[in-house]
């Protein structure tokens, strides 16, 4: 009996040891939001495990940390965070974990940020949706790659090479979009948005969105705020309203009926499953939507000019 017990203990200790060896050879990189899953997967390839802090299906706009999140942080060697307001839940979990050895990568450390917009936005608040923009995405990918390269020098060259390849795909996407819009006068384009998420993307194409319907990030407008927005859309001659896939948009139909704006739908990229290709697919889809919307707004502006 004693021999059997010793044998089991030996195999158990061997199993633990081998697990430890795997963890050491292949680090676990945590992420907080879906876009970072795509970025990190592209950078590390099969040299590391990418572990989401929260299981798929949560809404980052109102998520409250759970004990299981803390358990997942304990498995991570590094974690990539948005760090500017879209994953505050994660920052609380990381703080609670008290892991002095955990590398926390601030993906937005090198991104010039935009101010948050909305009727009830606090002073100094920044727009945390850097993952929606092409250039801001590339900057984050390079930042993550550089920090991971410094932490894992043996893979530095691979991480930087993968990041450049990812950036090249996004640059191609941007260049093709610019070509598709070559004949459009962007000065005539006026748009509104339900959620203050598209500033980084619109900025790259020289478009301003003066009307943001949500008074603050993830907050539904009151009746009076909705009326103010409707008045602003009417007085500014706004033709296009961008709204969110996968988010409550009860007020969108009201605005459409009251103002006659045409609705175009973007993906926020932070809903659904964690998939390596998610950012590329949804970014391309958003770009296609943007091109359609700009052509529509341009045609409307030309029609108004003729009248």
């Amino acid at each position: 009996m004693k021999q059997i017990y010793l044998c089991l203990l030996f195999w158990f200790s061997l199993l633990l040891h081998s697990n430890g060896a795997i963890a050491k050879d292949k680090p676990t990189i945590g992420i907080t939001l879906q876009p970072y899953y795509s970025y990190v997967s592209a950078i590390v390839g099969d040299t590391a495990e990418v572990l989401p802090l929260v299981v798929a299906g949560f809404n980052p706009h109102n998520y409250q940390p759970q004990p299981e999140d803390l358990a997942r942080v304990q498995k991570m060697d590094a974690i990539v965070v948005n760090g500017i307001g879209h994953d505050d839940f994660a920052l609380k979990v990381i703080k609670a974990a008290q892991r002095s050895d955990l590398l926390v990568i601030d993906a937005n450390a090198s991104v010039p940020l935009l101010s948050a917009r909305g009727q009830s936005v606090g002073q100094g608040a920044v727009n945390p949706h850097t993952f929606m923009g092409l250039s801001a995405t590339m900057t984050q990918v390079y930042e993550i790659a550089n920090q991971l390269a410094a932490f894992y020098p043996s893979n530095a060259s691979l991480y930087r090479q993968n990041a450049r390849h990812y950036g090249q795909q996004l640059r191609t996407m941007k260049y093709q979009a610019m070509q598709a819009l070559a004949q459009v006068d962007m000065q005539t384009i006026k748009v509104a948005t339900t959620h203050d998420a598209y500033g980084y993307l619109l900025q790259e194409f020289g478009i301003d969105a003066p009307a943001v319907i949500e008074p603050a990030h993830g907050v539904a407008p009151s009746a009076s705020q909705l009326q103010d927005t409707i008045n602003q859309i009417r007085s500014s001659g706004i033709d296009v309203l961008f709204y969110e896939l996968d988010m409550p948009n009860r007020f969108v139909t009201t605005i459409e009926q009251a103002t006659g704006v045409k609705l175009f739908r973007f993906s926020h990229m932070t809903h659904g499953d964690y998939e390596p290709e998610k950012v590329m697919l949804e970014m391309q889809s958003n770009i296609n939507t943007l091109i359609k919307a700009i052509h529509y707004a341009n045609a409307s502006a030309q029609k108004e000019a003729v009248q």
């Binding site: 090198s110 991104v111 935009l114 590339m138 900057t139 390079y142 930042e143 020289g206």
Partner: peptide, 14 residues
């Protein structure tokens, strides 16, 4: 200017 600085910061990294 922020838009241009964003592009220059990215160009710097590239």
């Amino acid at each position: 200017i922020n838009a241009m600085v964003s592009e220059l910061r990215l160009a710097d990294m590239e």
